[in-house]
């Protein structure tokens, strides 16, 4: 239990049930000819914490956006086996998305920003207000409901953005380098808070990052990608137990895991 190890391909599929999302042979070519992603296969199980790790330009954002339904793949399919589909055959994706920038509406208070998804889904105002306020409290922003984004620090804005992503209690939360622009202290704190949230809310987390350290600290599974064209190079399980905290961050296992993942990443870049 204590000795964390990396296994590949990953040994334990959580719950062993049907995956939430199946990415099959997905490629994406942009209009200008860039092949952003080539033949990616990936399945995301319920309750997983998966990091997409890779150098800049390897198609992490493109892949994440396609999973979210923003931009269709040029070939291949992205299936949602366990969700209902509408009349047009579109899956009713039950997801939240967190961008690299907080992407808040500057004219709306923190509370109104978090209420937005609820409003769009037609939830009554009073209920939406209550749920959004509860979500803000959950990310540690109680008392800032009426603050405008301009009055919040970078880390606080990111928290609002995460609260907005989670307010509908989605099955899956997609995050595109959410903490890349933050300083290390804030980043560590948000990493811890994100893990707590994930542990408590039991959503599936897909986390895009450049950082080996961040990916090892957070994830149960790391998908290493390489660039030109973007493709999956390795799919690693991180067998360290949760909850993870400062102790884990300073443990020899953590250092060891980081070294192994770094090696894989180097291989990916070198190839």
């Amino acid at each position: 239990m204590d000795t964390a190890s990396l296994s590949t391909p990953h040994a334990v599929r959580p719950e062993g049930s049907k995956p939430l999302v199946c990415v099959r042979h997905v490629s994406k070519q942009f209009g200008n000819g860039t092949l952003a992603v080539r033949d990616v296969n990936l399945s995301l199980g319920a309750g997983e914490f998966v990091s997409l790790l890779g150098p800049s330009g390897c198609g992490k954002s493109t892949l994440l956006r396609m999973i979210a339904g923003l931009g269709a793949p040029s070939s291949g399919t992205i299936e949602w086996p366990t969700t209902t589909h509408d009349a047009a055959g579109e899956p009713q994706r039950d997801l939240g998305f967190v961008f690299q920038d907080p992407t808040l509406m500057p004219w709306a208070s923190a509370l109104a920003n978090v209420m937005m998804p609820l409003t769009l889904k037609g939830v009554r105002k009073a209920e939406a207000r209550e749920r959004a306020a509860a979500m803000l409290a959950l990310v540690g922003l109680k008392g800032f409901e009426n603050s405008y984004p301009r009055e919040l620090s970078g880390g606080m804005k990111m928290r609002v953005s995460i609260a907005r992503g989670l307010v509908l209690r989605p099955k899956i939360l997609l995050m595109d380098e959410p903490f890349a622009a933050l300083d290390e202290i804030t980043r560590h704190r948000l990493n811890d808070d994100l893990l707590e949230l994930w542990w408590k809310e039991k959503f599936t987390a897909v986390f895009v990052t450049h950082s080996v350290f961040e990916s090892v600290y957070l994830s149960r599974r790391i998908v290493v990608m390489a660039a030109r064209p973007g493709r999956v190079m390795a799919d690693l399980d991180v067998d360290a137990p949760y909850p993870r905290d400062e102790l884990f961050r300073t443990s020899p296992e953590y250092a060891h895991l980081c070294r192994v993942v770094s090696g894989k990443l180097k291989e990916a870049i070198g190839s």
């Binding site: 959950l138 109680k142 008392g143 880390g155 811890d192 808070d193 542990w199 408590k200 137990p241 909850p243």
Partner: peptide
Amino acid sequence: MSVPSIDAPAAAHDGTDSEARP
């Protein structure tokens, strides 16, 4: 396995954001 409490106010583990009430 103890799960850290989420409900603890953020101010308990930092001295920055949450204490900066507008």
